[in-house]
């Protein structure tokens, strides 16, 4: 259990850090696109699918459950980026980012509850 969690932490962390590094390294338009690579989603998907036994009947079913929630989270992400852009400028990056992340939690749960639950 703990080993599995640690393994997912390390593999997930490496994936996200590497994709950020690659985005910078590539630069330009390709780098700009790659900087927004949905690395957390893919790593989390692999992490859940790899350990689906006992909870889901198939890898596809596990992936579907993760994707349904992640879709709500991704829609909320667009709002979060817009909110962060405005509030970081007005209130400073610490407060602005904290509020934007709170908005993310609220918006994701709301979208999920209304459309996907």
């Amino acid at each position: 259990m703990l080993e599995g969690l640690l393994l997912r932490f390390v593999l997930g962390g490496l994936t996200i850090a590497m994709s950020g590094w690659l985005g910078k390294r590539l630069g330009g338009l390709i780098g700009g696109i790659f900087a927004a690579f949905p690395a957390v989603y893919l790593a989390a998907l692999v992490g859940v699918v790899a350990g689906h036994a006992g909870v889901f009947t198939s890898a596809e079913e596990a992936a579907m459950a993760v994707s349904r929630g992640a879709f709500a989270g991704m829609l909320a992400n667009v709002l979060t980026a817009v909110v962060a852009a405005r509030w970081v400028e007005r209130r400073g990056w610490r407060q602005g980012l904290a509020w934007a992340l709170l908005v993310w939690v609220g918006a994701a749960l709301l979208v999920f509850q209304i459309f996907l639950a």
């Binding site: 949905p38 929630g69 979060t80």
Partner: peptide, 13 residues
């Protein structure tokens, strides 16, 4: 489980 999926979209980057 699907609620847990929301975390997979956490804007870490």
């Amino acid at each position: 489980p699907a609620v847990g999926g929301i975390l997979a979209a956490f804007p870490a980057v």
